[in-house]
Amino acid sequence: MALANFQFILILALVGIALPFIGVGVAWLLRPKKPNKLKTSTYECGVETYGDAWSQFKAQYYLFALIFVIFDIEAVFLFPWAVAYGGLGFYALLQALIFIFLLFDGLVYAWKTDALSWQ
């Protein structure tokens, strides 16, 4: 079953990634191609572009990604637990409560240190 699904998803992924390129290929046959210096310059609201864009950005974005990663892993652990939950005893609920509580702790810490507010 898993392998049958795998073949389907694999074909889907390949078609999904190929389709945009096919579309762009068709458009390449149809469209005009006359680039010039002004056309291919970087857009910056009509002013001359200064430097390239690959400059430094705020660490704030990184902090949000960081908290996200931790919660994402929590989800990976909790989803199988949720599926099995119907057949498990009270003990399972207790363990999951402790698990969620421990991670809630991390969120509270982030809140208290102002990592969650956008500066």
Partner: peptide, 14 residues
């Protein structure tokens, strides 16, 4: 291992 890798990446990149 996946979870530990993620924790490692998070702290390492920080």
């Amino acid at each position: 291992v996946l979870a530990i890798a993620a924790a490692e990446a998070a702290v390492g990149l920080a």
